[in-house]
Design a protein around this nucleic acid. Structure first.
Lengths: 156, 156
DNA sequence: TATAAAACCATAAAATACCATAAAAGTATT
DNA sequence: AATACTTTTATGGTATTTTATGGTTTTATA
């Protein structure tokens, strides 16, 4: 068995709204930076969400996990293979600058409808980047979904 | 079988009323701190309760369990996915300071109607934080519910 | 050389560490 | 059982650091 160094990766939690400057730079929330601080690559990997009007974000090690999983499954599941192919083709590794900022590529911003502000949203082992308004809308929608699915579970 | 490191987590028990200072700091009851003292993350994770006017609290390891479960199940259960998404987005990891205090974020305090005092309520593997008055009201209400549901079970 | 990208510098506000103390709880001693 | 002593806990205030954000300069590159 290949020796796999399993880096215990801390979770991406909570949500943070930050602002893009004139050059497109935006601070990655410090707690998100901390989540990947023990990794080789000091940065994150972004790609356009397949399902939502937002950007998906991962640590590089998670990307590698995904690659490994695809290697195993690929032969048996051509759909998964296609999906991961798209993902890898679309994925952008973005290194933090000294102050913890990244420059999100144009096409990703466009896909998410982001201009001057963005919310980093924790999703456990991954995160998302949204236009603040779009995010609020999406949140309300999934809250309504849950309400109708499990009326007794939710009040807020 | 993958080697799963099981962190021994002791239970959150009993209730403690503490006071918030001007900066929003509040001491986490020492017995609650002891419950997570063997964990990597010296702190707790808080989020707005979906069902009550209170704050929910968990250990980080519990949060990680959830993330692992969501990773496995998410694909098959979109409801679970929605729920955990909301949870991760709302969850605040809060580290203890040297004296065992945390700063509860504004929006959580608001959700629970907490201003200057709060009760930490043990719930076994989790806990809640309430405005003292609200908690008393909620207690009486659920006691009445029990009374009407099982009149013979309750003496108090 | 023009242009984009990276490195560098600066700062207000927010978050965290640090220091101090009184009250409470626990221990030991008579 | 009452007392003196020790330790822990909760709480308050102050100092220091970090973070997010803006701008400028230098370096690559097309």
């Amino acid at each position: 068995m290949p020796k796999t160094k399993t880096v215990k990766m801390s979770l991406f939690l909570s949500s943070y709204e930050n602002r893009l400057d004139t050059k497109g730079r935006i601070s990655v929330p410090s707690s998100f930076r901390a989540s990947v601080s023990s990794e080789r690559f000091a940065g994150v990997v972004l790609y356009r969400s397949f399902t939502n009007k937002c950007i998906e974000g991962l640590s590089m090690s998670r990307m590698e996990q995904l690659a490994a999983a695809t290697d195993k499954m690929g032969v048996f599941d051509s759909e998964l293979d296609d999906l991961s192919a798209m993902l890898f083709a679309d994925a952008r590794p973005l290194a933090f600058d000294v102050t913890g900022r990244i420059v999100i590529p144009e096409d990703l911003l466009k896909h998410a409808g982001i201009t001057d502000k963005a919310v980093f949203v924790g999703r456990g082992n991954s995160f998302q980047i949204w236009n603040p308004e779009e995010f609020k809308k999406a949140q309300e929608k999934s809250l309504n979904n849950l309400r109708s699915a499990r009326p007794n579970l939710i009040i807020g």
